[in-house]
């Protein structure tokens, strides 16, 4: 544990000075500030922020995480010749990257929100869910990035796979759901749709926030099923549990692969 904290400390020092992390912060800050100051309406701001969080954050996390492992290959080899075990190094590298990414997101979006806190007073709960969704997207997609880079020696293949994972969860998956719903429209598919939605970390984040806006009535019976599931504390807890699984499973799998891998 001790060496994990030491590695995190130095990785953070490196990443916080990285122009990519600083660039992310500037992007989040400029976009949120511009959005809030021009829109001025909490619901619209939150929905626009949500779209950015659900599309840009997974892309940044998965691509940056993959490149990070490939670029640090010689450094990882060097670290493994020191008296530290592989679990400490993998965890240290992961959290050493995730914490600066989280900071760039939380500060980048958080500072403009604090500056205009007046317009968010009534939607504070929704805003918290938006931030939690963003945090989980970083954790989940960086986990995937580390797993992909550990499993693939070829940088081009790894990067291609990362972009595919992003495309799959943010676009292809929804297309598949629509296709399935269309194919089996004569059957009661509400619970099936619910199951498919919570199985995707991006959709799960989206639905959690959307349902906070009381728009379920517009979504017919499916909306009612979703509302009855996500509207209570159990549904919310299950959702966050699933988001945790999405981050922990690829992380543990990546760690196991890294521990067994020939460097």
């Amino acid at each position: 544990m001790n060496s994990i904290i030491k590695i995190i400390k130095y990785q953070m020092q490196d990443n916080i000075r990285s122009k990519w992390i600083i660039g992310c912060f500037v992007f989040f800050f400029a976009f949120s500030y511009w959005l809030i100051s021009f829109t001025g309406e909490a619901a619209k701001v939150i929905m626009s922020l949500l779209n950015i969080i659900l599309i840009i954050i997974p892309l940044i996390s998965v691509v940056f995480g993959t490149i990070y492992i490939y670029n640090n290959k010689n450094y990882i080899t060097f670290m493994l010749t020191q008296p530290i075990n592989r679990t400490s190094l993998y965890s240290g590298l992961y959290f050493g990257l995730v914490i600066p990414l989280l900071l760039s997101f939380l500060l980048g979006v958080g500072i403009p929100v604090i500056l205009y806190y007046g317009i968010f007073i009534e939607s504070f709960g929704t805003l918290i869910i938006v931030f939690l969704t963003g945090i989980f997207q970083i954790l989940v997609f960086t986990s995937f990035a580390f797993l992909i880079a550990t499993l693939n020696e070829d940088k081009l293949k790894g990067l291609g796979l990362s972009i595919f994972i992003w495309l799959f969860f943010t676009a292809v998956y929804d297309g598949l759901i629509l296709f399935l719903l269309q194919m089996f429209q004569d059957y009661p598919l509400e619970k099936f749709a619910l199951g498919l939605t919570i199985a995707n970390p991006v959709d799960l984040g989206r639905i959690l926030v959307i349902l906070k806006f009381d728009v379920s009535a517009l979504m017919g019976y499916t909306g009612a099923v979703f509302e009855s599931f996500f509207g209570n504390n159990l549904g919310l807890s299950v959702s966050f549990l699933i988001l945790q699984i999405w981050f922990v499973v690829p992380f543990i799998f990546g760690l196991k692969m890294f521990s067994k891998k020939d460097i």
């Binding site: 020092q13 640090n72 010689n74 080899t77 010749t81």
Partner: peptide, 12 residues
């Protein structure tokens, strides 16, 4: 250990 080509985190 001294490797053939070393590299370290570039911003440190």
């Amino acid at each position: 250990y001294m490797p053939q080509s070393a590299s370290f985190p570039e911003n440190l």
